[in-house]
Amino acid sequence: MEITLPIVIVSLLFYQAYLYGKAVYMRRMVMMKRVTMFLERTDASDQLKMLAATAFVDSLSLKLPFQLVSFRKKRQDNDPGAKRAERRAKENLRKDRSSLHARQELDSLIEMMFTINLSFNKPLVILASLPHFRVERKPVPKDFYAESFQHGHMKIKEMC
């Protein structure tokens, strides 16, 4: 146990680095050609091209699972900002005048982004999916503090 445990931990770390390297290599060899082909298309609009470029950039980002989880939480809490963003995206897609083939290509590109990100990002996905793990801060309950501390009242007003 005393010999195997450190070796297992360090080999897991090496395996993670290997997965990251493999993801970088696969992105360069497989995804980059398709994204450049997509950017050169004439039947795709600028918005779809923007989506493809951001998908390429995001496929190696470490923040992606946290952003996904926070957006899902906002949507569950009926946050007005998230609702507005979703509605605007749907409207833009409806107005968009690019061909069906380009849209299917973009769908497959986004799917590839998720597979590449999941292939090396599993620990962070598990960490983000924990129920009581939050990265962003909770907003301070202002009324409570204003009532409880008379001296702090002005300070909180200044801060807001």
């Binding site: 770390l13 090496f14 680095a17 990251y20 390297g21 970088v24 992105r27 360069r28 980059m32 994204v35 450049t36 950017l39 050169e40 600028d46 091209k49 923007m50 470029a53 390429f56 950039v57 190696l60």
Partner: peptide
């Protein structure tokens, strides 16, 4: 590990820059 990860991050940065420049040109 540091050598490999530095190589990988440099590769990633170059790829990102290439795609973003391409998008701007388009």
């Amino acid at each position: 590990l540091i050598i490999v990860l530095r190589y990988m991050t440099k590769m990633k940065r170059v790829d990102n820059q290439l795609i973003v420049d391409k998008y701007r040109l388009e």
